[in-house]
Amino acid sequence: MNCAAPAIHPTAVIDPSAVLGAGVQVGAYAVIGAEVVIGDNTRIGPHCTIEGPTRIGRDNVLHAHAAIGGEPQDKKYRGERVTLEIGDGNSIREFVTINRGTGDGGGSTRVGSGNWILAYCHIAHDCSVGDGCVFSNNATLAGHVTVGNHVILSGFSGVHQFCRIGDFAFIGMGAFVNGDVPPYLMVAQEKYARPRGINAEGLKRHGFDASRIAAIKRAYRALFMGDTKLEEAKTELGEIALGSSDVRAFLDFIDAGERPLLR
């Protein structure tokens, strides 16, 4: 058990209502506002700004000049109490911005655990990000975006508001995503992002065996190759899903969407 008191640089400014766990480190000229809670052993770099209400878990590292928990960039925001929640073990690099939610959008922005969010990334209001994701430099989420687990957003990629990205997807560099991306897909940029096969290498790294990947490939071919209409393709997916829980998750993701499917 770590019982060490927080180590706070004398130039840091911390609101009296902020709660810092054991072993927290706060760098020079950092500013921590009201209603901020920071878990054990989290490190806050120099010149970081954290506004509340924000709750940050344990063992995170926030590098210099990150701006966390700021007001949502939404003209409808009128100062209502909205929150940001960040899990454990995240690396948040220089100049990252993560905003709190909006009253009309559920009231909270959420980031899970074990994510790498590299320099200059932006996560807007009311987004939900899962665990184990990598956001490369300048990747940007508009408001209300849902990102699953183990997703990679390459550098300079951008995601339109209200879109969803499923588990284990890979978004290529500079891709502008304006529709839902089902699990396991790899997409690349033309005018807008389009499917370019499944994220096979990423699936292998996460323990998917050959039979699971083969079923996902069959589902991909049924949905994205040829001129089959969406409803016909979904019927074929339903047949494949009888023997594959991965394809069942793929089909369930499609059925739950509000945005058009990226196709």
Rank of each mutant, 00 (worst) to 15 (best):
D104N: 10
G57L: 00
A7H: 15
K75S: 10
R43G: 07
Y120W: 10
Y120F: 14
T11Y: 01
P183F: 00
F176K: 15
A139P: 08
G52S: 11
D252A: 13
A139M: 13
I254L: 06
A119N: 14
V19S: 14
R248I: 14
C3L: 14
S17Y: 05
G23F: 02
I86F: 01
A18K: 06
G52H: 10
I123M: 12
G179Y: 05
A5M: 10
G226P: 07
A210H: 05
T146S: 13
G243R: 10
R58C: 10
I240W: 03
C121D: 05
T109Q: 02
L262M: 15
F208D: 00
H122F: 04
V134K: 01
E232T: 12
T97F: 03
S136M: 15
C163P: 05
G132I: 01
E190T: 15
P195N: 07
R58A: 15
V61K: 09
G143P: 07
G21C: 12
L141T: 03
Y220F: 09
P260Y: 03
P16I: 01
G148C: 03
A249G: 09
G103D: 09
D131R: 04
Q161E: 10
T228W: 07
S113G: 07
E71Y: 09
V26K: 01
V181K: 05
T97S: 08
D40Q: 13
G106V: 00
E201N: 11
K75D: 09
H63E: 11
G106A: 02
G39V: 03
G114S: 07
V145L: 02
K217W: 06
H63Q: 12
M186G: 00
T49K: 11
G172L: 01
V37W: 07
Q25L: 09
A66N: 10
A193N: 07
L251V: 12
A249E: 07
P182Y: 01
G166P: 09
R43Q: 11
Y120G: 03
I98N: 06
N99D: 11
A18F: 12
V96I: 12
A214Y: 01
C121Y: 00
K204D: 02
V145I: 05
L242T: 13
Q161W: 08
L203H: 05
V37E: 11
R212I: 09
N178Y: 08
V96T: 10
E201M: 14
G33F: 01
F135C: 07
I86G: 01
H65K: 09
Q25M: 14
